[in-house]
Nucleic acid binder design. Structure first.
Length: 561
DNA sequence: CCCCCCCC
């Protein structure tokens, strides 16, 4: 096979929009099938390419050409690429880096591996965001976010029912402590769940440093929803300067990652409402409901009494929490159509701090935890007694709690009504408290990092922000790659370990790597996980049991504050 | 084909 020789090489930073006459030489540092959830639509093969100047570009191989190039391009390898196009993408979203111009393969593109003399090509490219960066970002940003931190905890896998009859999707929450000491919760969606092999990570026996490239951040009302997407890449114990910074700030405590119950985490708003402002009951009374909509507040108060004039439960759809009423045709849910009703707790109560009082409402499972009311255990007469709350609830009268509150439009009548998003009993003796470090600027790593990309001047794509320098790993092949082959769960390679611990042993070598195109056929090994860790039994506890426990040996009480 | 829950 003979390949026409383009006359000259161009560096990525010099590329202009349009068809390219010259060739480029780049390392493919990330490579993924771009798949849009929840219907798993395959839009093409995307990649992140870096040249020997440390300049990065997002590239894409259109879906029609994917089969032609699939076997020719592998993550971690360096290629000479000739005859391609440069330009923006129609839908500007989920790009790996803040650069609007992409590399586009076309039917004439020629790609040749460069086997030697490739040490100058960085093995990784990250632009790690600080906690404050993460909190400032949302779906308006067209590019994805990279983070690095210590992986401290993970939940079991839970199936989520999507809106608008779009089926279900599996998720697992993981918790990352960033260098500043602040924690973020990241939702890992199927099929990324198998790429972060939690079983193997537990077996490490310590909490590892984890770099994550390409997560998307959304504002979901007041809290940050941080999701994986098809472009997300996990790197365990990466050989990066930032790894050392993170480890220096967050020393190894010698314990494996914690396993949390997804049900509990869904009610844990310390993570999902990190911006909740501390306030007194008194402060909230002077606020304007219209202007604080969506905001969350952290307040302390005692439970004065219940308000049961409008009952302590409502009837909801059996499959969701929409309220349903009896119609001539039966019960009808806007989401699930014909349904049957079930009782759902909706408990209104007054909290007091000094002489100031606040009307609040708490729903569902959170209400069950707060009040101790278990609807399935009630007698018929208790259920029928709409204006008298079951006696067990009275045990919390007079008790003090810290609440996460937000204005509710589901309250009782006009005026300020607050919905409870989370509560935590205020106890005399605190057991173990997580000590949050003050939030420094988290930028010490910046000084150690080469600023290659930002030093490039006269780039034709002036969009690269000066926010952070790139993190460039110039020592390839030393970091542990997470093995993504579904049936090799127990394999995690140690630093500098096995010979197949090379970038090429990553995503593209998994035999069924492309099998999820347009399908939902892939299953992960969750049943194995659940067999190992019987969450249901361990976590079936009273209202105020330990929030978390550490598998497998200890069952300590931890207050996340 | 176009980026997933978290409602009441």
């Amino acid at each position: 096979m003979s390949i026409a020789v383009a006359d000259k090489q161009t560096k990525l930073s010099q590329l202009r929009d349009g068809g390219q006459r010259s060739f480029i030489v780049v390392r493919i540092v990330r490579l993924w099938d771009s798949i849009i959830p929840p219907r798993n639509i395959f839009t093409g093969i995307d990649f992140l390419a870096v040249d020997d100047k440390g300049f990065a570009m997002h590239g894409t191989i259109p879906a029609e050409l994917a089969d032609d190039f699939h076997g020719l391009i592998k993550e971690g390898h360096v290629y000479r690429i000739q005859i391609f196009e440069v330009g923006p993408r129609g839908r500007k979203t989920h790009l790996a880096i803040p650069l609007e111009a992409l590399l586009y393969f076309n039917v004439s593109t020629v790609i040749e591996p460069i086997p030697e003399g490739i040490d100058k090509y960085p093995s990784h490219y990250f632009r790690f965001a600080s906690y404050d960066d993460v909190m400032a970002r949302n779906e308006k940003l067209y590019y994805l976010t990279d983070v690095i931190g210590v992986l401290t905890a993970a939940t079991d896998v839970k199936s989520v029912t999507l809106n608008n009859n779009r089926g279900t999707s599996d998720k697992r929450e993981i918790f990352l402590t960033l260098q500043s000491g602040q924690k973020i919760k990241i939702t890992v969606w199927d099929p990324k769940i198998v790429e972060l092999d939690i079983t193997s990570i537990i077996l490490l026996g310590y909490k590892p440093v984890l770099a994550i490239g390409g997560i998307s951040i959304r504002d979901n009302q007041a809290y940050k929803q941080i999701n994986t997407c098809s472009g997300t890449k996990f790197l365990l114990e990466p050989n990066l300067p930032e790894s050392f910074d993170v480890r220096k700030s967050i020393p190894d405590d010698g314990k494996p990652i914690e396993l949390l119950s997804s049900a509990d985490v869904d009610n844990l708003r310390d993570y999902t409402y990190p911006d909740a402002k501390e306030n007194r009951v008194q402060d909230l009374l002077y606020m304007n409901a219209a202007t604080i909509k969506g905001l969350k507040f952290k307040v302390k108060g005692k439970i004065l009494r219940f308000q049961t004039k409008q009952g302590w439960y409502y009837n909801s759809c059996k499959d969701c929490t929409f309220g349903v009423k009896k119609e001539p045709s039966g019960y009808n849910c806007p989401r699930h159509g014909d349904t049957s009703p079930r009782m759902n707790l909706k408990v209104s109560f007054i909290i007091q701090d000094g002489s100031f009082k606040l009307q609040t409402v708490v729903f569902g499972n959170l209400a069950k935890k707060l009040t101790g009311i278990d609807i399935s255990n009630l007698t018929v007469s208790e259920r029928l007694n709409l204006d008298q709350i079951p006696a067990i609830a009275n045990s919390i009268i007079g008790k003090e709690f810290e609440f996460i509150l937000g204005v509710s439009d589901q309250g009782y009548g006009p005026g300020l009504n607050f919905k409870v998003f989370y509560f935590d009993p205020v106890e005399q003796e605190q057991d173990i408290s997580f000590v949050e470090k003050d939030n420094g600027d988290g930028s010490s790593s910046k000084d150690l990092m080469p600023h290659i990309q930002t030093e490039i001047s006269g780039s034709s794509h002036g969009q690269v922000e000066k926010e952070k320098g790139p993190s460039v790993d110039v020592v390839p092949n030393l970091q542990t790659e997470i093995n993504v082959t579904p049936n090799s769960q127990a394999q995690i390679f140690a630093e500098g370990g096995t010979p197949n611990c090379t970038p090429s042993a990553s995503l593209t070598d998994a035999p069924n790597e492309l099998s999820h195109r347009g399908t939902r056929s892939r299953r992960h090994g969750d049943s194995l996980f659940l067999n190992f860790f019987p969450f249901g039994t361990l976590l079936d506890r009273g209202s105020f049991g330990p929030l978390f426990f550490c598998f497998p040996t200890s069952s300590k009480k931890i207050n996340f504050k």
